[in-house]
Each structure stands twice: as structure tokens, then as C-alpha cells.
């Protein structure tokens, strides 16, 4: 048994309108592994869909005990959007073995949980489950896309007085979940730790662009023309790394990757509404040749001026490498070996 740093907190994990990918991503936690991490965080799993022993009757009994107050619910993690359809009935997801909709269960449990944590962008904002014309009436807990309110309504606070804590991402990074559960269990999670979208600053106070391995190409506007080119993906292939709040390129995924190291542009999956960008994901919307989605905080005139300047100054190495799938031109060597 690992030494527990923190107090004992009861956690219940519900899955609804999602793919289960956030729970699976959480299993990828490393040094320490997920089970040890939870032990250290002082988290007692009341029930988790991929880890717990018991099902059916036991689970239904547990839900009753939580609702009548016999079992304390410190942390409610919901994974997946709330499916309110068809016609507001919630029948697109009835909890197996019962005639209760998940919609109703989520409402009941959110009202009595100390902390409510939305796991992943579906739960936070609706996400992929709310794609297309959203015929399932999928919504996030505290936001419906970019609209405040969501399923639990504007002004919702859990028993602790906190807003819904939104861990965004599609899927979440395991570290985002574990560190923020530790914040909660150690009493450090306060309202001023969350941004306007309810996302912890420890995830969202930086951009996916930070630490981008293609940064030198970005600086010189040496752009990829097609997927698998090494160049910057912003100008022609829709990359939103400069507009997405997340630390994907400073905190490695699966030991060292990110969507961008894998060769694919950032689709801003931590942002509300990412599922319907209004254009194909691989397209950069432009007006008069200038990308519509400028880097966050950057005045347009500056962007235009700097881009023009840096394009004029692009070294041949970057210009050429940007359009290859492996490095063809090496950096020049300042020092030459003595003959």
C-alpha cells in the first residue's frame, strides 16, 4: 500500500454520452500507475466502469445509498455528454437494469456531490457527441457548446460551492485528471484556480503551441503543403495550436508524443465547439490570404507584418525541409573540424 499524502475521498465515476476514451486514457498514467496514483491521492473508488469488481444489483444499491445519504459522495466524475434526447426524455441512455435515464441520475447525484468533475470535452461542452445537428440533444454539464448553463443550469455550484470542474480534451491527458483530483482531495481546488470555462489553470493557462516541435517553421512561416510535411501546419492545414488552451507539447502523451509530433494539426479539442469548426478540419480559413484564426493575443497588423518579414527571411533549410517528410537540409555547422 502506497503512503497516502491526502485525505480519504469517495469518488464515483459515471459514463454517459461518450466513447469511454477518457477512462482508457487514464489507464495510460505512468510513474506512478493509475491505481497507485489514486491511492496516493487518497481517492477511494466507490465505483469505476473499467476497474470495479461488482456490477448490477450492487451498483444500483450503491446509487441508492449515495442518494439517501448513507454513503458520502465527495467527488462525482462524469465522463460523456448528457444525452437529453429524444425530446428531452433522456431515453437515448437509460441506465442498464433500470428505467432511469442517465440524465436524471446525473442531475440527482450532481446535487449531492461535494465536487462535480466533467471528464473530457463531451462532458464539459458537449464535444463530439454534440456534433452534426446534435439530434441526441447532447450537452455539457455547465456549458452547452459555448453557451453558459448546460445541463445543470447557470449558477450551478456543487455542495463545496465550486463550479463544475472541467477537465477538457478528447481524450483527457491522464495527468490532467490525476493532478486535479489531487488538488481536490488536498483541499487546494478553489474557484480562482478555474478559468472562465471552468478549466483548471494548470491545464489551460498555456497554449498547445508552447513547446511545439515545429516552432522554428512557425517563426519563419515555413509551412507544410500537405500532411506528413515537416513544416508549420497553421497556414495551410488548419492547425489551431496557437489558439488552443492546453499543454500538449510540454507534457508528453504516451511517453513523448502529441497530435503535432504525430504529423497532424491541433484541432483544439480542449476548446468548446471544437467538433463543429465550420470548415473542414484540414483547412485554414483565410480572408485575403490571412488566416482568420490568428494566434491568441496577437494583433492582426503585427501578425501580417511579422509574417511578411519572416517569410522574406526564411532560411533555405527551413523552406526546403518544411515540404519534406524527413530532414533534407542540415543546419550549417559554425565550426569546422581541423584538417
Amino acid at each position: 500500500m502506497a503512503n497516502k499524502l491526502l485525505a480519504n475521498k469517495n469518488l464515483l465515476w459515471l459514463q454517459s454520452g461518450g466513447c469511454g476514451g477518457c477512462a482508457i486514457s487514464l489507464l495510460n498514467a505512468e510513474t506512478p500507475d493509475l491505481i497507485t496514483s489514486l491511492e496516493i491521492a487518497g481517492i477511494n473508488l466507490l465505483w469505476h466502469p473499467s476497474l470495479s469488481e461488482r456490477s448490477g444489483t450492487y451498483y444500483q444499491k450503491l446509487l441508492k445509498e449515495i442518494q439517501d445519504g448513507t454513503v458520502r459522495l465527495d467527488i462525482l466524475c462524469v465522463e460523456g455528454a448528457v444525452l437529453c434526447g429524444p425530446n428531452g426524455t433522456g431515453a437515448f441512455h437509460l441506465l442498464a437494469g433500470t428505467s432511469t435515464s442517465m440524465m436524471e441520475l446525473i442531475a440527482n447525484l450532481s446535487a449531492i456531490a461535494d465536487h462535480v468533475v466533467a471528464i473530457g470535452s463531451c462532458t464539459a461542452f458537449g464535444g463530439i457527441s454534440a456534433g452534426g445537428d446534435n439530434h441526441t440533444q447532447a450537452t455539457g454539464l455547465a456549458f452547452d457548446g459555448k453557451e453558459k448553463g448546460g445541463f445543470l443550469g447557470q449558477g450551478f455550484c456543487s455542495r463545496s460551492g465550486l463550479r463544475v470542474i472541467n477537465i477538457p480534451g478528447c481524450p483527457v491527458h491522464p495527468g490532467w485528471v490525476i493532478e486535479n483530483l489531487m488538488m481536490i482531495s488536498s483541499g487546494l481546488m478553489k474557484d480562482d484556480e478555474l478559468d472562465d470555462w471552468g478549466r483548471p489553470h494548470n491545464i489551460a493557462n498555456r497554449l498547445a503551441h508552447h513547446g511545439c516541435p515545429r516552432n522554428e517553421f512557425y517563426e519563419y512561416k515555413a509551412s507544410a503543403l500537405q500532411l506528413s510535411d515537416l513544416g508549420c501546419l497553421m497556414e495551410n492545414l488548419g492547425c489551431k495550436g496557437t489558439q488552443a488552451s492546453a499543454d500538449c507539447n510540454t507534457r508528453p502523451w504516451n511517453g513523448g508524443g502529441s497530435c503535432i509530433t504525430g504529423g497532424y494539426p491541433c484541432i483544439a479539442c480542449t476548446e468548446p465547439g471544437f467538433e463543429e469548426p465550420g470548415h473542414p478540419f484540414l483547412e485554414t480559413l483565410k480572408i485575403a490570404g490571412i488566416p482568420v484564426g490568428l494566434p491568441i493575443d496577437m494583433p492582426k497588423a503585427w501578425f501580417v507584418a511579422l509574417s511578411a518579414l519572416s517569410k522574406a527571411a526564411t532560411p533555405k533549410r527551413l523552406k526546403q525541409n518544411a515540404r519534406c517528410d524527413h530532414i533534407e537540409v542540415l543546419p550549417e555547422q559554425r565550426n569546422k573540424a581541423d584538417e
Binding site: N28, E30, P252, N254, G257, T261, G263
Partner: peptide, 21 residues
């Protein structure tokens, strides 16, 4: 779990991340 997570570094190298590469 640690063996599983280490093996999934293949995904990190070849496809950026998993799931949803």
C-alpha cells in the same frame, strides 16, 4: 499497468497519442 503504458509509447512515437490518434 506500467508494462501496458510503456508499450503504448509506440503510439506516442508513431501516431502522437492514443486513444484518438
Amino acid at each position: 499497468l506500467p508494462a501496458r503504458a510503456a508499450f503504448l509509447h509506440i503510439m506516442g512515437i508513431m501516431a502522437g497519442k492514443w486513444p484518438h490518434s
